[in-house]
Write a protein that binds this DNA or RNA. Structure first.
Length: 427
RNA sequence: GUGGGUGUAGCUCAGCCCGGUUAGAGCACUUGGUUGUGGCCCAAGAGGUCGCCGGUUCAAAUCCGGUCAUCCACCCCA
């Protein structure tokens, strides 16, 4: 067997791991400020959770799920997104009985069997939030404000755009779809091949097409979704928009925004960027007032979103946005010469680590020169040098790697140290 | 599922068009440059089934076919 990972999956190493965790913890910290608390849900669910949740005609369910039959004969799927699982948990644990509003966030790996390309892997990380129990536009507004704050604190607000739309309720959407079909069918020949198919399957998607001729055709459509929204949906959107204005959150109404999942109603939004090629959404979400009921719970309005962590990372990279990471603790290298000193170094290293100091030491007998090189390379702030001479006199040499200054102290000085800061006092 | 690009050292790549001695560079790694002192410099060393299989040829990293992998784009989505 050859050691090889699955196509579309990635191993992530330092320092990317740190960057990923940093973005993750930053967003979580923002969510906490809004009163959200974390939920951890399984990566594996019964396939039905996703097929009824997301809609079994969606691309994700139809061709992108990692689904298989267990030994117990159940059909299960690895989660392709987070919302359906959170809703399942919300219903299963009757969270709607515990308080009128429930605010949850989650993070973790999602799996979709798509063809990989830039900004799109088969496994990727999302951080998402869901708010259950309010249909008020202020709930939408708060969810968006939370997302926008997270984006802002990541330093990305100048590089992205918040796009907003309403896709109304299913009945309104149906009428709009029919109108679209009615308008586009006569012009079918000027649409690209894909869009000709979409006329039958998902006409809303045609609005999203990037093909030049399709754009021309769709730009002539004399009506938009807004003309088909009920008064209620329309007012909801207006109220949301004015609330965002009140919070000085910049948004752009884009009547062409469409979502790939069936569960959305009314509000939909995306955080988009022009810097990631065609994978232009770094976060997206919307309202899904019908989903809880559809999955067997009581009628419960809800709104939420998910952020694609890898795309955020790509965007941070491309825009050169530096996040000040907490940084690692300063490193101390313990350098030894001779077997006795080597044993002593191991003991000292252990002792210092118990005090919270970050320590490296060589396992084998290597030359002083090579150990110094390694200390330099790994960015050590200090080197503790213990050779035969030092051991005999029960002392050690401490070298400040930045200044090159070096002094000798009794060995017991190390035992008395209380933390890394104490090194600075010595040298 | 459809189209295009690329597979040579741990990493980034040169060599391929115009087949021909032991397949190269930079970075990284190891060891040295008088006995125990890093960064710079210098030297030496280690490291490669040239993705894989087949064909053409006296001879293939190089030409041809297939295959696999990977990247990009479409599609879809975060």
């Amino acid at each position: 067997m050859k050691a090889a990972r699955l196509h579309g999956f990635k191993d992530i190493f330092h320092p990317e791991t740190e960057k990923l965790r940093l973005v993750e913890s930053k967003t979580k910290e923002v969510f906490e400020r809004f009163g959200f608390s974390e939920i951890i849900i399984p990566i594996l669910e019964l396939s039905g959770v996703y097929s009824t949740g997301l809609g079994d005609t969606t691309d994700i369910v139809q061709k992108e799920m990692y689904a298989f039959e267990t030994k117990g004969g159940e059909w299960v799927s690895m989660r392709p997104e987070g919302t359906a699982g959170v809703v399942r948990a919300f219903i299963e644990h009757s969270l709607y009985r515990k308080s009128p509003v429930t605010k949850l966030y989650y993070s973790g790996e999602m799996f979709r069997h798509e063809k990989p390309q830039e900004g799109r892997q088969r496994s990727f990380n999302q951080v998402g939030a869901e708010l259950f129990g309010s249909s008020d536009p202020l709930a939408d507004s708060e969810i968006i404000a939370m997302l926008w704050l997270a984006i802002t604190e990541l330093g990305l607000s100048d590089h992205v755009e918040l796009e907003l739309n309403s896709i109304g309720k299913p009945a309104e959407r149906e009428r709009y779809k029919e109108a679209l079909i009615g308008f586009l069918s006569p012009k079918k020949d000027s649409l690209c091949e894909n869009c000709q198919n979409r006329l039958g399957t998902n006409p809303l998607r045609i609005l999203d097409c990037k093909t030049g001729t399709c754009r021309e055709v769709t730009s002539e459509i004399p009506f938009s979704i807004r003309d088909y929204l009920s008064e209620q949906s329309s007012e909801h959107l207006d109220a949301l928009a004015s609330s965002l204005e009140g919070k000085s959150i910049p948004y752009r109404l884009n009547p062409r925004i469409v979502r790939g999942l069936d569960y959305y109603t009314d509000t939909v939004f995306e955080i988009t960027t022009d810097k990631l090629g065609s994978q232009n959404a770094v976060a997206a979400g919307g309202r899904y007032d019908l989903l809880v009921e559809r999955m067997g719970g009581p009628e419960t309005p809800a709104v939420g979103f998910a952020i694609g962590l890898e795309r955020i990372l790509l965007l941070l990279e491309k825009t050169g946005t530096r996040r000040n990471s907490p940084g690692k603790k300063q490193l101390v290298c313990i350098i030894h010469i001779g077997d006795e000193a080597r044993e002593e170094a191991a003991k000292i290293a252990d002792d210092l680590r118990r005090k919270g100091i970050r320590v490296e030491t060589e396992y084998e007998n290597k030359s002083l020169k090579s150990q110094m090189r390694k200390a330099n390379r790994t960015g050590a702030a200090y080197s503790v040098i213990i050779g035969e001479d030092e051991l005999r006199k029960k002392v050690f040499s401490l070298r400040n790697m930045r200044t090159g200054e070096e002094k000798t102290f009794p060995l017991k000085t190390l035992a008395d140290l209380r933390g890394h800061g104490d090194f600075r006092k010595l040298l």
